[in-house]
């Protein structure tokens, strides 16, 4: 009788432990962090994101610091204060204006890479962003970075799954994902 009670207790404990494990199991989800704002690294992030989405993984990309400028829409003009205007002029105005992490060569590098990409049928970063949007890839943009650099929500691209967030979202997104990359 006593032994049976022991078994019952053990079973309850096991069920509880399995439930805890299941609740904490990583989701079939990829989390990417973009910080650099470099064309090459941002393209890598979107290619990996699209690949993962094709594999039916959910994808979240966190955009912070320099990378936030990659999401500016050059067609949108917004009013800013003096410092904001200065930053706005110095930062790349959108995905089409990003520098390379290597071989920048005063702007020659990105032009050459774009030429080679076109020749090889590789999509531009803007096209990759559209594909990512179609596949439901979610973008999370750091509001503090935007504030620091004077980037306004009104000048961001029209992306269907874009949220403006803080570090709490970043930690939450990364803690439950199966794979995490920071570029």
């Amino acid at each position: 009788m006593e032994n049976e009670m022991g078994n019952e207790q053990m079973m309850q404990d096991l069920i509880k432990r399995v439930e805890t494990l299941e609740a904490n199991a990583p989701e079939d989800r990829l989390a990417l962090g973009c910080l650099s704002g470099d064309l090459d690294k941002t393209m890598a992030a979107f290619i990996i994101a699209i690949g993962a989405a094709a594999f039916d993984m959910e994808v979240d990309i966190f955009f912070t610091f320099w990378a936030t400028a990659a999401l500016r829409d050059p067609k949108k003009k917004v009013k800013k204060d003096l410092l904001g205007n200065m930053f706005g002029m110095m930062l790349p105005n959108g995905a089409g204006k990003l520098p390379l992490s290597k071989m920048q060569m005063m702007g020659m590098g990105p032009l050459m890479i774009k030429g080679v990409m076109k020749k090889h049928g590789a999509k531009s970063l803007e096209e990759l962003m559209k594909d990512a949007a179609d596949l439901g890839v979610r973008l999370h943009v750091c509001t503090m970075s935007m504030d620091l650099m004077g980037i306004k929500r009104e000048e961001m691209i029209d992306y269907p799954h874009m949220q403006f967030v803080g570090v709490g979202t970043f930690v939450d997104i990364f803690s439950n994902a199966k794979q995490c990359w920071f570029l």
């Binding site: 699209i50 094709a54 090889h120 049928g121 590789a122 999509k123 594909d131």
Partner: peptide, 29 residues
């Protein structure tokens, strides 16, 4: 004529139009 991740993405999009149990052919350069 499309580069990575084009063919994979095309396959992912096209599979919905391939009837279950049938064959899909993906051409890639």
């Amino acid at each position: 004529g499309t580069a990575c991740p084009g063919p994979l993405l095309d396959a992912k999009r096209a599979i919905a139009e391939c009837p279950v149990g049938e064959v899909m052919e993906v051409q890639s350069s």
